[in-house]
Design a protein around this nucleic acid. Structure first.
Lengths: 172, 172
DNA sequence: ATGTTATAGTTCCATAATGGAACCGTCAAA
DNA sequence: TTTGACGGTTCCATTATGGAACTATAACAT
């Protein structure tokens, strides 16, 4: 499968991967969250090549995750700011950081701690059900085929791989 | 910066990216969560090349995310199962799916809905503080330098890029 | 007004990662 | 004993990436 096809998959995870499914994009976004917003700063702090960074920033702007804002009078210098779509990636970053803290850490402890407004203690982020408030994990939660898949199944719009996918799922 | 160096960064997000910072790995893991556990099934449902899949599965086993279990008497056929480390990726997948549902969806609606034990309604996953229960988002939460960074700063163990990184952060 | 530096890139080329087809070895059923 | 399924590996062409060198504009310094 070609890279561009990923964006057209039905699966929301696959679609998301078409945005940040590479080694740099989430790190660039992390930098912008950390207020490292300028090309040269992002480049120096990440060690990404300029070429790659230029390409990634352009894509993120095209995809509506960042916007490019001139910060000088001459309008030749820009910084990148998170759009609403970009800001909404925060829970993903926090959840990944949490997993990394737990499973990839060394003996020095967590590199960052998270503090949020209105709570004394460092935040320990967990994913919960908005409805009942219970924590969600692999043992108590299950994905079920929803309207998005149903509609396309009915209209017969799936690729060979997606047909395989959903026939495998229905067996279980 | 070389790819292998990413795994040795201090940042938990960078370290996590060394595991699943590419276009396929999270999709492979998603399949295993969906009980698509065998080489040929994963390959047929994802459309990844066999070569790539073989490489990704080997890495995930090396990294302790999956384990390879023989399912025939002759021990020549295997399936891949999530370890505890792998199972703990569930909140990440759910959070990414949620973002994709919100920002990458088409008019057919969510491809999957999540149901969890003990709640009638489809789960709408949100990231909350385990301590106070409040939702965590970009507006109410902030990363602060923690013990992991402090220890390495004191010992002077950072690469050029990481020094840049943390000097930029301390300015803000 | 002239040279220097900082920013934000682009161009070019060598190297690394990926996709796709073909091939291989083991086992199980026909 | 042959056939097919499974779980790969090998090989080669294509694509993505890293790194160095170069460019264009504006601000700053002399």
């Amino acid at each position: 499968m070609r890279w561009e096809d990923t964006a057209n998959q039905t699966c929301s995870i696959a679609r998301s991967m078409s945005i940040f499914g590479d080694r740099w994009t989430l790190l660039v976004i992390r930098q912008v969250f950390m207020k490292v917003r300028r090309f040269s700063e992002i480049q120096a702090t990440l060690g990404i090549s300029k070429h790659r960074l230029s390409d990634r920033l352009t894509r993120l702007v095209d995809d509506g995750v960042l916007e490019k804002v001139a910060y000088d009078a001459g309008k030749t210098r820009f910084e990148y700011r998170l759009t609403e779509k970009g800001l909404d990636l925060y829970p993903i970053l926090v959840t990944i950081a949490q997993w990394g803290d737990r499973w990839m850490a060394d003996e020095d402890g967590k590199p960052f701690v998270y503090k949020h407004a209105g709570c004394e203690n460092p935040a320990d982020p967990i994913v919960c059900c908005a409805d009942c408030g219970e924590p969600i994990n692999a043992h108590n939660c299950k994905a079920e085929i929803g309207p998005g898949i149903m509609a396309k199944l009915t209209r017969g719009e799936f690729t060979k791989e997606e047909q395989e996918q959903y026939s495998v799922l229905r067996k279980s």
